[in-house]
Amino acid sequence: MALTDAEVARYARQLLLPGMGEAAQEALRDARIRVTGGGLSVAPATYYLAAAGVGTLWFDDPDEVKPEAGAGFALGPDDLGRPRGAALAGFARWASGLVTADLFRPGSRPTALLVCGSSPDVSRAIADEARLLQLPHVVADVDGQGGAVTSVPVGSPCYSCATRPGLGGAPTADGGATVGSLAALELILLLTGASQEPRARRIEVFRGTPLVRATARQPGCACAGPVAAGLAP
């Protein structure tokens, strides 16, 4: 379905960006993103995905909002005690009146995942699930020096192949904002095809400086199996 007048007006400046256009904007509108995890990157990523015109955001985060909640500026005092996923859905709707935002429910069929786990182990488990479901996904990791964003198109080297130990340290809000916004952009590029560059890559941010590298499959990794070859059901 063609963009409505309201959508053209809302996304006019974005529609003029390199690689963007009506088809790319429609792809965003048709996307259904499962947003998992409650790390510091989830709020900025949510904001940018909603503002960019992603049609549906489903939040998969059953934890309650606590005073030390890792969702940054998105959640306020009124959200304390609420399920964090529901609070983030409300934040997404605040960011854009054109987005459908709700809790992720069994049976929902996302077209891609954004993983904002609170630790690499949590992220790895969710990323593996996405890989087995053959869904493109982007993983945002925040650490004490910044963090990293890993883009995993279907069939490409998996998150585990791409990951290398970070510098550790307690995640910071600054790192969450940087990594979250980069993760949203990487997912938008995956969904729209707005870039001709290979998208299987990892962006590591160290004190504000990004380093981009293509990811490579590690020998013997399970991601080289039938799922990568498109043979799995």
Binding site: V8, A12, R13, L16, G21, E22
Partner: peptide, 12 residues
Amino acid sequence: PVTWVKARIALS
């Protein structure tokens, strides 16, 4: 910029 955006879409 809606003027040019709409023209650009129509041209496409």
